[in-house]
Write a protein that binds this DNA or RNA. Structure first.
Lengths: 210, 210
DNA sequence: ATTAATTTGTTGCTTTTGCAACTGAAATGT
DNA sequence: ACATTTCAGTTGCAAAAGCAACAAATTAAT
């Protein structure tokens, strides 16, 4: 039995009929949502890109996750506390489906196809999410900036089935994503280039070593 | 509707009758499993404690997750690659349930209660797992050892509803869990004590400031 | 009970990372 | 088309973290 899921198919089943699911539009740089304790909102990106970000008291920004089409997010996946203010910011114009976690376990009156498919597939979606977060942990637990960069590049390379790949955000954001200082990261990228380990053209990188 | 799940109850429904689920015993320090690509094993700890660990080429050990009773793990939650050898090591004598991911989506012939409860609740279990991994990310993305320690202590404090709490592993392992050098961590703990921010007695810590 | 092994605690020294500050390039807005 | 903002790229200096090595304390093993 194949437990893979084709998320796009599933999402295309959405229709305006389902009363439990809202579709909303957000412009670039708008805040899509701020995580609130006790609320259990679930969001799916139909179109666009967004980041889940945290700003520390000292102003340091961390990109916790980067979302593209078909990605899912919301406070159900987070233990929201007073110490961590989390918000999701649109990086491009976005089209978002919003519903409550409860509705995943309760049929809607219209018994719509989107809703029933959502219910059926929710565990697979959640398992996929665990996988993607674990990949992030894999990178964050690396001890040096160099290892983090190479770990991340390796992942992108594997995912794109090519030694050359595009980093999906600006280098400034990449530093926030790897949770390191930008200038220190730039320096490390310079060393990696000098040592012939990587090549770089804008945000297109190539891994030269295995 | 309440979407919380009482995992212990669910696990107690296990009976030897279900042909798809095995129960195995492991002694302290034994390797429970090594993650293998394409296999989709799921394990639940009935009794004992275990760590998911990664050893880097340079010998550095990272504790990716720490499991206690009722925790769930297995390669379904991981994108297993050649670059990351992951294994789960028993830290105490363990009693483990093992089954394949497929069986979560297929009834067993005996139609046993454990199995059907597993199927029903799997998405909730997976969502809980996302939450717990995200808490880990929250800590790993902190920039300094001090912030990582305080972030982790805060979490333990919140979880135990008390300013005083026990760290569930040795300080050596804690360093591997926070992904930092042990001696540097010890130094930071010393500073935190000197500054009156924490108190420490063995692996029992107290947070003195808000 | 004694030995062995592991864990804790500490410290000098080195390396890595972060911070601040600035320049030029690119993108964006009006 | 020009001004403004954001992003990339650099660098000196300071701070933090890592490494190595060791002694003392604890825990486990025989």
């Amino acid at each position: 039995m194949d437990v893979e899921i084709n998320l796009p198919d599933f999402i295309n089943k959405f229709s305006e009929k389902c009363a439990n699911v809202q579709k909303k539009f957000f412009k670039k740089n708008q805040i899509i949502t701020t995580y609130i304790q006790k609320r259990n909102q679930v969001c799916i990106i139909l179109r666009g890109e967004a980041d889940l970000v945290r700003y520390d008291f000292n102003g340091a920004k961390t990109i916790i996750e980067h979302y593209t089409e078909n990605d899912i997010f919301g406070e159900i996946f987070y233990t929201v506390s007073v110490n961590n203010e989390l918000s999701v910011e649109a990086k491009k114009n976005c089209e978002i489906l919003i519903f409550s976690y409860d509705s995943v376990y309760n049929k809607c009156k219209e018994n719509c196809e989107f809703h029933s498919t959502l219910m059926e597939n929710f565990s697979k979606i959640a398992v996929e999410k665990v996988k993607s977060i674990n990949t992030r942990i894999e990178i964050l637990t690396k001890r040096t900036i160099r290892e983090k960069l190479l770990g991340y590049f390796n992942m992108l390379s594997t995912r794109s089935l090519s030694r050359t790949f595009k980093v999906p955000f600006s280098l400034t954001d990449l530093a926030d994503y790897l949770s390191v200082d930008r200038s220190a990261m730039m320096r490390e990228i310079k060393y990696l280039k000098e040592e012939g380990i990587i090549e770089k053209e804008g945000n297109k990188f190539t891994l030269l070593t295995l």
